[in-house]
Computed example of a mutant assay.
Amino acid sequence: MTTLAQLFTRIALGLGFLLPVGDRLGFMGAPDSGKAAWGDWQHFVTYTHQLMPFTNMYTANIAGLAATIAECVLGICLIIGFKVKWMGLGAAIITLTFAVFMIFSLGIGAPFSYPVFVFTGAGLLLYTHHSFPWSVDALLNKN
């Protein structure tokens, strides 16, 4: 059952990173369509700036780009099962960082309106595992 649980966790966490990336790139629907949180890059950067009010919009854009690249790498690697242990730790760090920014900018309840701490916990659980059947890691370890 542990094997199935960690596989499900990897896929759910990976999709949990990739779907918001698709949203900010406009693949989930237009802004204000009710189908997307942001709907485009500009709305996402505005939200990033809201979480980081001590920055200017240029810096928020750079931070948003860095987060987007990290989330793409984490999402893809978790789904295919590459370097899962370290991707789990990376997922925990990025989501905990997000939660801290949410708390300071939007209040203590903000990260609880989304599964931010669930993502952090899932990443930490993956980090505690040492083998990942049904993964690229398992295939590489066989060779």
Rank of each mutant, 00 (worst) to 15 (best):
K85V: 07
Y58C: 00
L106V: 07
K83Y: 12
V73G: 06
I62T: 03
T48C: 09
H43S: 15
G88C: 08
T48V: 14
K85L: 07
F98N: 14
E71W: 06
C77H: 08
F44C: 09
F98D: 09
M57L: 15
A60E: 06
L96T: 12
S113D: 13
T59G: 02
I69R: 02
T95P: 00
F98T: 15
V100I: 15
G39H: 00
A67W: 05
I93M: 12
A92P: 08
W41C: 05
I80P: 02
P115A: 08
Q42V: 12
P111K: 09
G90Y: 06
G109D: 14
H43T: 13
G75H: 00
I108S: 08
I93T: 09
A37K: 04
A60I: 01
C72N: 07
Y58P: 00
I103S: 08
A110C: 11
A67C: 04
F112T: 07
T97A: 15
F44N: 03
G34E: 10
V100A: 10
F54A: 15
F54I: 08
I62N: 02
M57W: 11
S113H: 13
A67M: 12
A70S: 14
F44W: 12
G34Q: 07
M87K: 08
T59R: 01
P31Q: 01
A66L: 15
F98K: 10
L106C: 06
W86V: 05
H49P: 00
V118D: 03
A30Q: 13
G64R: 04
F117D: 06
A66W: 04
I103F: 11
C77T: 06
A63Y: 05
T97L: 15
S105Y: 09
V100L: 14
I79L: 03
N56V: 13
N61P: 00
G88M: 09
V84N: 11
K35Q: 12
P31S: 00
F101T: 14
I108L: 14
F112Y: 15
I108C: 03
L96A: 15
L78H: 02
T46S: 10
A66K: 03
A60L: 03
H49W: 12
F82N: 01
